[in-house]
């Protein structure tokens, strides 16, 4: 199996792509292929990894033009674009290099974040956006002596969003994040919604106002790329839709901006 891999080293004039051939073993993941390249062919190849079991969120990258966790992606599911996830278009999805998608797997860094080296991106902006929604629990009063009592159904609703591993796949998949530098992105908004619906919260039911701005809930254009790429089944687009409905019912009438009004922003590498 061949891998066409994005390369960039600070100081280079621009990125380039290298082609590697890796012997495919049954059950091989994209991460295992990258490890094999780094250990046996090119020690200088840089990428992040940690759990290798799709629970820590470290290795999100653009694989065959879809943001995915490399450790969760089976190589045989990629050959010939068999399991391709179809996404609403944005600039990073354009194919600008020669790439034979029948025989090669294309591996690039997660879009919309600056590249540190090769497949390693600087996640600072992603986490800064997360912190704009004040992602911390405010205990409702009175604080009980033991645990807060909670309905199982409420737990189930919360789990839908607490399952987020903050890998950034949704951020890299969002057409709005590709051009709106103010938009906190799907993960940050889903996290805000998680606190909003927590029945134990002091500010239960009122936290969505934090993102009641043109570049907050109202900037989403419902491409739903976020929900389609999430490796943990978290649906940020549903959270955003529900938040907007709630705000509308409260009489908020923010105008949804038309797509394409903001200046386009190239995400990758330069």
């Amino acid at each position: 199996m061949k891998f066409r891999v994005f390369r960039y080293n600070p100081g280079d004039t621009g990125p380039h792509y290298d082609l590697f051939e890796v012997e495919e073993i049954p059950g091989m993941t994209a991460l295992a292929a990258l490890i094999s390249i780094q250990e046996q062919q090119d020690p200088g190849l840089s990428f992040r990894s940690s759990c290798r079991g799709a629970v820590c969120g470290t290795c999100a990258m653009l694989i065959n033009k879809v943001p995915r966790l490399a450790c969760r992606t089976q190589v045989n599911s990629l050959a010939g674009m068999k399991d391709q996830i179809h996404l609403s278009p944005y600039p990073a999805l354009e194919v600008t290099i020669p790439w034979d998608h029948d025989t090669e797997i294309l591996i690039e860094p997660l879009p919309h974040l600056p590249v540190v080296k090769d497949l390693v991106v600087d996640m600072t902006a992603f986490f800064d956006f997360l912190h704009t929604v004040n992602p911390v629990f405010h205990p409702g009063v009175p604080v009980p002596e033991k645990e807060y009592q909670m309905e199982r159904l409420a737990v189930k609703d919360l789990e839908t969003y607490t399952n987020c591993v903050l890998c950034g796949a949704c951020f890299g998949a969002c057409p709005v994040n590709s051009r709106n530098p103010e938009y906190p992105g799907p993960a940050a908004l889903a996290t805000l919604y998680r606190f909003h619906i927590d029945p134990r919260e002091r500010d239960h039911g009122s936290r969505i106002s934090t993102a009641d701005t043109k570049s907050g809930w109202w900037a989403c254009e419902f491409h739903t790329n976020c929900t389609r790429v999430c490796p943990k089944g978290v649906p940020p687009s549903i959270a955003i839709g529900r938040a907007r409905n709630e705000l509308k019912q409260k009489g908020n009438n923010q105008v949804i901006p038309d797509p394409g009004h903001d200046t386009p922003r190239r995400g990758q590498g330069n």
Binding site: V143, K146, E147, Y148, Q149, M150, R152, F195
Partner: peptide, 20 residues
């Protein structure tokens, strides 16, 4: 230690009575 983390926001699974 467990109650403290629950009070910080950890969503533990619940029994029928709503307890951890």
């Amino acid at each position: 230690a467990v109650i403290e983390l629950e009070h910080m926001g950890t969503v533990f699974s619940r029994d029928e009575a709503g307890r951890i």
